[in-house]
Design a protein around this nucleic acid. Structure first.
Length: 431
DNA sequence: AACATTAACAACCGCAAGTGG
DNA sequence: CCCACTTGCGGTTGTTAATGT
């Protein structure tokens, strides 16, 4: 889709406006084939003439769809630079663009904004994206806000592509060491569902986090203790049915299964987690029943899961959903903040060692600091590493998207294990 | 070279929150 | 409080380029 701009002399676009944006404008309509193919569109619209804004009157002209032309880009850019962002419908009317305001906003945000960083994601960005996704799930905008110059769309595209690739290759979505172990001492703590509002997932995630938001928040702490002895991760792929909100875990399907079996058994025996046998209509077990005694995960709100999440997952990894209760998180966060060192020193493998107190972590600095503390430098090969998945269905964050008020934790008591232990604390600080 | 598949990207759509009258 | 409009977000789809067979 990206077509090298064959600069249209007639447009006199500013010389290479923006490294990427200028040089690589999508230029569908003015370049050969694209142009021809879009002739129909152009016929009834205002690509070349411009929209005079009178279209609202009788028989409003159809707003143009499809790829933007360099001319449109220029108009939009000029207009926004002159008048600022916002009022996108005004932009549409006043800039001579026959595009809906929405489209204008999108075009500006994703392609014309001067601060956009074009080109492929570098390793650091990829690392961040993975981390963010583990924490927040499909919160593309949120991720973008932590990746200067990147857009949510870009991140989303990248992730989805990556997801497909990994899925196809049966590779883990997240690196093993990021999701090796999830520990939670407060396995039975229950958080009521009332707090779940009607907000959509992202707002929901934010609502109580506010301060924590920037902070990469919704914390997740991994404590890496020892990989050698216990390299597997007690995780089962969880699958949530979009319609019902039920969670189920994905049965291991391939060779990797055995690899994880030990750990899975470990988890299952030590915790009250997913009964291996219970199966859903999809063939996946579902957490069911009493919140206080089982791994039930309530999900009353719209999940916003991407389509692929609704279909059977082919990942072979085991997942286990874990979500600490808010109060516990708060406690633990507190501890962490007050003495982060304790995390590495204690090594109890318990959630309690970690921390994050929302109120105390309301700035990006702390956020980043904690982030780094929590996530060791990622020198791994993301793609080829482990088969360990974090405890959540792939499209949702491991924890971040797991509303505390709806998640019950199964304890994975690994305190005695010298193995790699990652403590993940997610969810929101619940008050 | 032709075709098929995959990756990358761009854009649209629907939904929901925010805002102002 | 209601309603219309705007804005933002996430999911989805469509197109093209790249790669494989």
């Amino acid at each position: 889709m990206t077509v090298k701009v064959e600069q249209d002399p007639a447009l006199e676009l500013p010389p290479n406006t923006e490294a990427g944006a200028g040089a690589e404008f999508s230029q569908p309509l003015s370049s050969g084939k694209e142009e021809e193919e879009n002739d129909d569109d152009e016929d009834d619209e205002t690509d070349s003439v411009g929209y005079d804004g009178a279209g609202n009157g009788g028989g409003a002209p159809q707003l143009k769809k499809g790829p933007w032309t360099p001319e449109e880009d220029k108009r939009l850019k000029d207009y926004v630079e002159a008048h600022g962002e916002g009022n996108w419908n005004q932009v549409q009317r006043n800039a001579g663009l026959n595009r809906c305001g929405k489209s204008c906003r999108l075009r500006w945000a994703n392609h014309l904004r001067p601060d956009l960083k074009k080109g492929p994601f570098d390793a650091e960005e990829v690392d961040k994206i993975i981390k963010f996704h583990m924490m927040w799930g499909n919160k593309w905008a949120k991720m973008a806000s932590h990746l200067p110059g990147r857009t949510d769309n870009e991140i989303k595209n990248y992730w989805n592509t990556r997801l497909k690739r990994h899925q196809r290759a049966n590779l883990p979505l997240y690196p093993e060491h990021l999701c090796s172990r999830v520990l939670d001492q407060d396995m039975n703590r229950h958080i009521p569902d009332e707090s779940r509002g009607k907000k959509r997932s992202n707002e929901l995630t934010q609502e109580k986090v506010v301060g924590m938001d920037d902070l990469v928040g919704d914390l997740m702490v991994f404590q890496h203790l020892d990989y050698g002895k216990d390299p597997v991760v007690p995780t089962n792929p969880l699958k949530r049915h979009a319609s019902t909100g039920d969670l189920s875990y994905v049965q291991s399907l391939d060779k990797v299964e055995n690899f994880y079996s030990n750990d899975l058994n470990y988890v299952l025996t030590k915790s009250q987690s997913v009964p291996l046998g219970s199966a859903t209509a999809n063939g996946y077990p579902i957490f069911d029943g009493n919140p206080s005694t089982s791994g039930t995960i309530h999900r009353s709100k719209k999940t916003g899961l991407p389509s692929f999440q609704c279909s059977s997952y082919e990942f072979s990894n085991s997942w286990l959903l874990q979500c600490p209760t808010a109060s516990l998180i708060e406690q633990q966060l507190d501890t962490c903040i007050q003495s982060p060192e304790s995390m590495s020193s204690q090594n109890t493998g318990l959630l309690g060692e970690i921390v994050n107190k929302g109120d105390a972590l309301d700035d990006c600095t702390k956020s980043e600091r904690l982030f780094e503390m929590v996530f060791p430098p990622l020198g791994y090969n993301i793609v080829s590493q482990s088969n360990a998945y974090p405890m959540r269905h792939p499209s949702s964050s491991v924890i971040g998207d797991c509303e505390p008020e709806a998640c019950l934790f199964d304890e994975i008591q690994a305190s005695n294990s010298p193995s790699a232990v990652f403590l993940m604390l997610g969810c929101l600080v619940h008050h």
